[in-house]
Design a protein around this nucleic acid. Structure first.
Lengths: 216, 216
DNA sequence: CGATTCGGTCAACAGTGTGTCGAGAGCGGG
DNA sequence: CCCGCTCTCGACACACTGTTGACCGAATCG
């Protein structure tokens, strides 16, 4: 799943000239850097512009708003996460062993870890930003679809017992991942220690799908 | 658990005079009403003030900011949720039957349903608002503690098998609840139909705790 | 019963941020 | 050489926030 329709639409009025491409990259880099220090809401367009060595109006030549920058950043991260997933581990009906699930969860957690500032910012922005919400929803839908397939395949084979409709189980497990990982990396509320994250999640996935933490 | 320390501190400089109490209530009511239409970020202090029939500066006599209003609203909802929980169902080591768990989950979902606008607004505000974050973290910690106790009791009795540390299991299940319920009520992304919410969550709780969806 | 105090109210101000407009600078190509 | 293009920014209009200071009316007290 490569998510071609996700390509950011509100990027800017740029056409094809080379020189100013650097500026665009500079803005993105500045945003990712500053996001590691403060939340997006505490960043002004001016901070982003100055950080990239341009004036505020020039910023608007490249991006329609702060949020558009975040969307572009998120788009990259999502593409990377998707590649990590698709790149081997977990395609189609292949998969379903403990190690397949572990690899998928590890890919998820690692991508989050590698880009926590972007991921955390995206999570904060999502409620107020339709585009971020839709992009994320699309990504989740992809993951849910894939998990649903594997669960159904395991049931057809008799490896997993019947239970909740596969899609519903996939949805709750995915939601759990999202919230638990967010909680661990944002550090508020009761959280799972970062180094045990994958194991804990894996245990719950396996138990609910196969009714035992150590499936065939 | 009654959370006495949660009492909102940033409420206003009011002392004890009667007449102006109505204004405070009017602001809160206006906020809850408007929140059903737009997110908090789209509401100005002026909207709140006009809605309550006062001027903007007067608003500041009662609340330090928009966010303080939300915090007060959330504080009420949380107190209610806590009462629903504590009010019978699920005290101390009592509990652990299917119906106990179901009642607890129903209380959770129903409180959310009854105040969705406040709950959704609080969820959006949490990343940027320390006080909301802390209040919510405190509440979650309470739920996690209680669930942990019940799980440990069941294990001690031999009703539930060993597995993940009880606290970690309680954390992930709680996180799952939060995210799934939020997803269902906010309507973005893949979601569980509202009328099946409790059943689906219950199934996962029981399966992970007792390793079967139909415990003793 | 005038003076004082205090809860409550708001017009006006200062500050910070956003997004836009219009006037250009620099450069390639006809 | 000038046209048109990308790219740049000073200056503006606007929205919203939070504060100040003057003011009103009603209790309270000497």
């Amino acid at each position: 799943m490569s998510l071609p329709p996700a390509r950011v639409a509100a990027r800017g009025r740029r056409a094809a000239r080379p020189s100013g491409d650097d500026r665009e990259l500079a803005i993105l880099a500045t945003a990712e850097r500053l996001l590691a220090e403060k939340p997006l809401s505490a960043l002004s367009v001016d901070d982003l512009a100055r950080g990239a060595g341009i004036s505020r109006p020039t910023f608007y030549f490249y991006f329609a708003s702060k949020d558009a920058v975040l969307l572009t950043l998120l788009d990259r991260v999502v593409a990377e996460a998707d590649a990590a997933f698709t790149g081997g581990v977990f395609d189609g009906l292949q998969g379903g062993t403990r190690e397949n699930w572990r690899a998928a969860l590890t890919a998820y957690v690692d991508t989050f870890r590698a880009h926590r500032s972007v991921a955390l910012a995206a999570a904060s922005a999502r409620p107020d930003n339709r585009e971020v919400r839709e992009l994320w929803a699309r990504v989740c839908e992809g993951w849910v679809l894939r998990a649903t397939e594997v669960i159904e395949a395991a049931r057809a084979q008799g490896t997993a017992p019947d239970g909740l409709p596969a899609r519903q189980l996939a949805i709750v497990l995915n939601s759990m991942n999202e919230r638990v990982v967010y909680g661990t990396f944002s550090g508020d509320g009761p959280a799972i220690p970062e180094d045990q994250l994958v194991d804990v999640l894996l245990d719950v996935w396996l138990t609910t799908i196969y009714r035992t933490p150590h499936p065939a």
